[in-house]
């Protein structure tokens, strides 16, 4: 394991290397004081570097084993842990299938697509579905919804919650015991009460909220999903210095990744699409640039295929690339109904 892979600034990395710290193992036994002296940096900075280490190595499933690095885990442990995990259903079985059962906890999933394709709908749907009681096969968690665009509509959330409840009751209609046990939870208003909604109006607020979330989640252990709709909007204005934007964004994604791991929750980032000018032509791509595409574990693209909505796994370490149709109905995200006519009001 190399120092070069550590998520720290290039100058810090250069200092580490020139001071002779070339492997992670060499860093594992060092104290912040010693490191600060060797690198000739502030104590705070040194301890920040060391803080990055345990998380980083844990996510890398280091072969070194527990003895060498605190917080390391074997791949076997991780596998059994993952098999215990429940996933958050999207409401559309086909979509769940290509996602490997739904949205995974401890992972950052990015969802992109053109306006009107259903990103916000999926966001609201997940904020509702994460609350499905354990008895109904859900996670019974709460949701944090960070709205940067003002697209979250309470009436729509209410509608989707109603749709979710209706479908659940229908699915479990033969299990009277379950229905009786969860009567109180299965009300649209209690679903709405468990969505923590943040409306933010600038990128500084966005960063501030994300930094504050660590503290907030320590108190609200039930939160199982964080949705940011959209992660992009405030980063597409006023950033003449793109290098600075990249730094701010990668800091944000690191923080989100950390929250996902620490609190065992799913992070879903909704992203816009933009046109990119390459080799003399305009092409469609997700916003925020190339370096941002490293920020998330999975990347799902929503697109139009004729008159149907489709989802496509664009990037994932563990899922194979596949696509599935879905539809946005009055109840929320559901399987595509190509046979039926699309629901039209009026």
């Amino acid at each position: 394991m190399e120092i070069a892979n550590l998520p720290i600034s290039p100058s810090q990395r250069a200092k580490l290397l020139s001071a002779g710290y070339t492997t992670l193992t060499s860093l594992s036994a060092v104290s912040p004081f010693q490191l600060a002296r060797d690198l000739n940096i502030a104590l705070q900075e040194a301890s920040d570097i060391l803080k990055v280490m345990p998380e980083f190595t844990r996510s890398e499933s280091l072969h070194g084993g527990n003895a060498i690095l605190k917080g390391a885990q074997t791949a076997w442990d991780m596998l059994s842990e993952e098999q215990m995990q429940k996933h958050i259903t999207t409401g559309c079985e086909n979509l769940d299938t290509i996602l490997g059962g739904g949205i995974h906890c401890k992972e950052v999933t990015e969802v992109g697509g053109v306006p009107g394709i259903g990103k916000t709908q999926l966001g609201i749907q997940l904020a509702v579905n994460v609350q499905i009681p354990v008895e109904y096969g859900g996670l019974h968690g709460k949701a944090v919804y960070i709205d940067t665009e003002g697209s979250f509509m309470v009436e729509r959330a209410h509608q989707i919650a109603e749709g979710c409840i209706m479908d659940m009751l229908d699915k479990f209609r033969h299990h009277q015991k379950v229905i009786l046990a969860c009567q109180e939870q299965m009300q649209p208003n209690s679903f709405l009460a468990n969505i923590f909604y943040f409306r933010i109006c600038s990128y500084t607020e966005q960063i501030a909220v994300i930094n504050y979330l660590g503290k907030f989640l320590a108190e609200q252990k039930d939160v199982k999903i964080i949705i940011i709709d959209s992660v992009t909007f405030h980063f597409r204005q006023d950033f003449d210095d793109l290098a600075r934007r990249t730094r701010v964004l990668s800091g944000m994604s690191l923080e989100l990744m950390k929250l996902a791991k620490t609190y065992n929750l799913a992070v879903v980032l909704l992203n816009q699409v933009t046109t990119k000018f390459t080799e003399g032509s305009f092409q469609l791509t997700l916003a925020l640039g190339d370096s941002w595409s490293h920020a998330c574990t999975n990347r799902v693209i929503l697109y139009w295929n004729g008159n149907d909505r489709h989802a496509y796994i664009d990037k994932s370490p563990s899922l194979r690339s596949a696509s599935a149709p879905f539809s946005v109905t009055s109840k929320g995200i559901r399987n595509a109904t190509s046979q039926c006519k699309r629901v039209r009001m009026m």
């Binding site: 944090v144 309470v154 959330a157 208003n189 709405l192 009460a193 969505i195 923590f196 909604y197 943040f198 409306r199 933010i200 607020e205 501030a208 909220v209 504050y212 907030f216």
Partner: peptide, 8 residues
């Protein structure tokens, strides 16, 4: 900086 809001 920003507090969560109740949807109601």
């Amino acid at each position: 900086p920003v507090k969560p809001e109740k949807l109601f």
